[in-house]
Computed example of a mutant assay.
Amino acid sequence: MRTLDFSPLYRSAIGFDRLFNQMEQNLNNSNGGYPPYNIEQQDENHYRITMAVAGFSDDQLEISQHQNRLIVTGKRAISEQDEKRQYLYQGIAERDFERKFQLADHVKVIGAAMENGLLHIELEHEVPEEEKPRRIAINGQRLLGQADSVVSHSAE
């Protein structure tokens, strides 16, 4: 497997260290694509991650969000019956997993549900009011600071 060295970029790119860390993490992702998943955009601000987690129950799955990272973990409890099984062929992956997703700013998990072996995680992009685009009225007045100084000079 080929590895990439991003260290020269750290020296010449200012403020992009998080981007390079994210690229390194994605390249070094060792879970081999298990479990498979889809990411669906339902509308402008709503997304859904669907993961195929056949064989896992609700209590064996854990979903957590820390800052901009969503982590889905599956841990199977091995029973005595499982240990005694002898497979001639085992094509169904029944192993523990941890899948990490990097979320954009202001994306939060709003719910999760299991249905027919699929885990659905609902996400919402909620932009704070102060960061939303706003319309500035054009009414011929100057900025407050400038208007005050003009008024004070004309009064003298």
Rank of each mutant, 00 (worst) to 15 (best):
F97I: 08
D59A: 02
Q67A: 14
R18Y: 09
Q86R: 13
I63R: 04
S57F: 00
I39D: 12
Q102L: 04
S154D: 12
E98G: 11
A147S: 14
S12C: 06
G15A: 05
R85G: 00
Q65C: 07
E129C: 04
I138T: 14
A104G: 06
Y87K: 06
V72N: 09
V53E: 13
E130L: 01
I78D: 02
N26F: 03
D59F: 00
G117R: 03
P128R: 06
G91A: 10
Y37E: 08
V150Y: 11
D17T: 05
K75N: 12
K108R: 06
K75P: 07
G32T: 04
I121V: 15
I110M: 09
D43G: 13
M51A: 15
H125M: 12
Q60E: 10
T3K: 08
P128V: 05
Q42F: 13
N28I: 01
R76H: 04
K84F: 03
L19G: 05
V107P: 04
F101R: 00
A147F: 07
V107T: 05
R134S: 14
L4A: 02
T73I: 14
H106C: 02
A93K: 12
L88E: 12
R69G: 00
S79P: 04
Q102F: 03
Y87P: 10
A113H: 09
H46T: 15
L70Y: 02
P133H: 06
E80C: 05
A93I: 00
N28S: 06
I78G: 01
L123F: 08
T73S: 15
R69P: 05
S152C: 06
D105V: 01
Y10Q: 03
N31Q: 09
D58N: 09
Q86V: 14
Y87T: 09
L143H: 14
P35I: 04
A137F: 15
S30W: 03
G117D: 05
E80F: 06
G55V: 02
L27K: 04
E24K: 04
E115A: 03
R2I: 11
N21W: 04
E83S: 08
E130T: 01
V53K: 08
N139V: 14
L118M: 13
N28W: 02
Q60V: 00
L9Q: 02
H46N: 15
Q90W: 02
E40A: 13
N139M: 15
G91K: 10
M1T: 12
L70R: 00
P128F: 03
Y10P: 04
N31T: 08
G140I: 15
V107F: 01
L144S: 15
A147L: 07
L70V: 03
I136E: 13
N38C: 08
